[in-house]
């Protein structure tokens, strides 16, 4: 395996593990928040005034906060659905959701309980990314760089067309309404991470 491929796999694995943490966090494993924030810190040195607070209280307060933001039963203060940000009326299961569905289908994927859970929940969008990155890694390990590149391109497209179009706003909502450092810091970590990804896309484009 050539060195640059090895580097690419290593980098991919790091990004994969981060996405995986965020996926699990958004799919309900709120306790993973601290791990996500800590892992991010290893990945990206943080050197501005938005430093992570270390007093994460993995207690009920964080859980209640998490539910107020993402789960309910009240109006979600930081809705985890893409359509909440992109649909003019903030409804779920609208055109915006179906675009995401279409994208998944392009990669041969769909939501297991389709039409019961909106396709554009952030936990599912992150799972989709994990899938794409895992495929990319798997193809790289098999020295099939052309298929790997296909998955990489799909990932970039999905990230740019979907994730980056709403998740920053979503994180702003978390910082506006979140009461606990756990939820707030996770949002900051997520922003940091996505910005890194975005920067990578740009630098690649410059390179080309």
């Amino acid at each position: 395996m050539p060195n640059h491929t090895f580097d690419r796999i290593t980098d991919l694995a790091k990004r994969y593990s981060l996405y995986s943490l965020f996926k699990q966090y958004y799919q309900g494993e709120w306790e993973l928040a601290r791990k996500a924030a800590a892992t991010i810190q290893q990945y990206i040195p943080v050197n501005d005034n938005l430093s992570f607070q270390q007093d994460h209280q993995l207690d009920k307060a964080a859980l209640f906060d998490y539910n107020r933001l993402f789960v309910g039963p009240g109006k979600l203060l930081a809705s985890p659905y893409e359509s909440a940000y992109r649909n003019a009326q903030g409804l779920v299961m609208q055109e915006e959701t179906l675009f995401v569905r279409q994208f998944y289908l392009q990669a041969g994927i769909e939501v297991s309980n389709k039409n019961a859970f909106p396709d554009d929940h952030l936990g599912l969008e992150f799972e989709f990314i994990c899938y794409l990155l895992a495929r990319e890694g798997e193809r790289l390990q098999a020295d099939d760089s052309s298929t790997a590149n296909h998955y990489a391109a799909l990932y970039q497209e999905f990230c740019q067309q979907h994730i980056l179009s709403w998740v920053y706003q979503h994180c702003d909502d978390i910082l506006t309404h979140g009461r606990t450092s756990l939820c707030r810091d996770t949002a900051i970590a997520l922003v940091r991470f996505l910005q890194t990804e975005e920067a990578n896309f740009l630098s690649k484009e410059e390179f080309v």
Partner: peptide
């Protein structure tokens, strides 16, 4: 990678 909320179409 393990599927949780998604699955092959």
């Amino acid at each position: 990678f393990i599927f949780s909320g998604l699955s092959p179409a």
